[in-house]
Design a protein around this nucleic acid. Structure first.
Lengths: 248, 248
DNA sequence: ATGACGCCTTGACGCAGATCAAAGAGCCGT
DNA sequence: ACGGCTCTTTGATCTGCGTCAAGGCGTCAT
């Protein structure tokens, strides 16, 4: 259970696995020292809800290791995931008292938390922090907008293919997988979580994954392990048309 | 045709209609003066596309008057609107060379443009600018996520009711409409644009508007003019459950 | 006035995905 | 090795919305 977590030194930000990509990415040593004064780590187990929508939030945080989701729920129970939080992603919003979404751990997770008040004060005088947060927020906005296209206009099959594509892409950027052959990824989500992300039902998710397997677009071992024999084929199925070829 | 536009002094930011809400909202007189050095106004007619996705963008801009839309298009023609730009909203992204979306004027529109390079340089040394832009971007991110719930989980009827609600809300905040009686709004979009926004077809939009009218949730005069006899009823139809009442 | 054009409405029909239902597969604790 | 759990797959049926098609209405140019 505790093989992976916290193999970094929790006092020294220099050894932090998200040092290069978190909110603190641009901070110099002096700024980092100030951050260390107000930071603390928290771990959660897979399945735990870290924050409930509407809760008072007295901290903001970065995901250090593990995966969490941001979801919205309607009172009749319909759920829509609005964000997938990966290591280095930021949770919470300076200048807002209450959480707007549920935050749930889908794997065991370690967060680097900052008490909100001091963090906000520090942001005032630390352009590096505000600039980096702006950059990250703009990226999230782009991702949200791409997801809007998916939710509004793509078919179930395209949605599944898009999800696998996105997970594969980030895995690739993380551990630079082999170029030519088949890429392999682990789906970090249950069928139900995928359904909540894609605006589908879990049955439709299951069926479409089966269909993509039948059509040899993906190969599945076990339940969550997917290998992609032909990435271009998958991109085509996703409707993303990221091919750089001159047509006709 | 040119009744409304440009009734403010285009040299003096002090008379600008979005002075209080734009990126420049927090700037002091000195900073404003610097901005005035790099700003210029441009007007576009309704229907014109200001920017094509993929275009080189050498400016960023604020909407001063009028309405524009941000849309994504798939190569087979499916379209999804990913943003509605109202006065004070910001277009373009510091640190990015190309436009990610099409920007189209739905009414005649006036933009306050800043050459990108100088604007970026100014942001470095002007925390007020970066802070305000961060705040605006976070608001947009929230709006995008609310829209994700709509696109992924709401029925066609709820989508229409939500759209009318949102337009009514902002109209209310703009010109503080009469409290008790019926609120009245103008839909600034064609049925097709609404469809693109809501992830529907234009026929479904038309049918659901007719249905809401039949059910007396809204009253329609002409094509675009809507009055809402009972706001709570509309909110209920939108599935938003913003009622503050203790149930049962 | 008259036709053309853009925008909107309404009807008939079909299908993608939701819903309802049942059962398989891996994993745990005892 | 067993029942009880969660997660998943698959089938049968239903339905909301898309698609195709035909007009209606208001505005503009001639």
């Amino acid at each position: 259970m505790d093989l992976a977590p916290a193999r970094f030194n929790t006092h020294d930000c220099g050894t932090c696995p998200i040092r290069e990509r978190g909110v603190c990415a641009r901070c110099d040593d002096r700024e980092l020292e100030a951050l260390e004064q107000i930071k603390y780590y928290r771990s959660y187990e897979a399945g735990q809800t870290l924050v409930w929508s509407g809760d008072q939030m007295d901290f903001v945080a970065s995901v250090v290791t593990g995966i969490a989701t941001l979801t919205q729920t309607m009172e009749d129970g319909r759920r829509q995931m609005v964000g997938l939080l990966l290591p280095s992603d930021f949770v919470g919003r300076p200048g807002r008292a209450c959480a707007a979404y549920d935050v749930t751990a889908t794997t065991d997770i370690v967060m680097c938390c900052f008490r909100k008040k001091p963090f906000e004060e520090m942001m005032e005088g630390t352009p590096h922090l505000a600039q980096r947060l702006l950059e990250m927020t703009l990226d999230e906005l782009d991702a949200a907008r791409e997801w809007m296209l998916l939710l509004g206009r793509k078919t179930a099959r395209e949605k599944i293919a898009s999800l696998i594509t996105i997970i594969a892409k980030r895995d690739a950027s993380a551990h630079a997988a082999g170029r030519g052959g088949g890429v392999t990824v682990d789906l970090p989500l249950t069928r139900e979580a995928m359904a909540d992300y894609l605006g589908l039902t879990l049955e439709t998710v299951s069926r479409q994954i089966s269909a993509l397997r039948r059509d040899k677009v993906i190969v599945i071992e076990g339940k969550r392990h997917v290998t992609i024999p032909d990435m271009d084929r998958l991109l085509e199925e996703a409707g993303d048309d990221a091919d750089g070829g001159i047509p006709a």
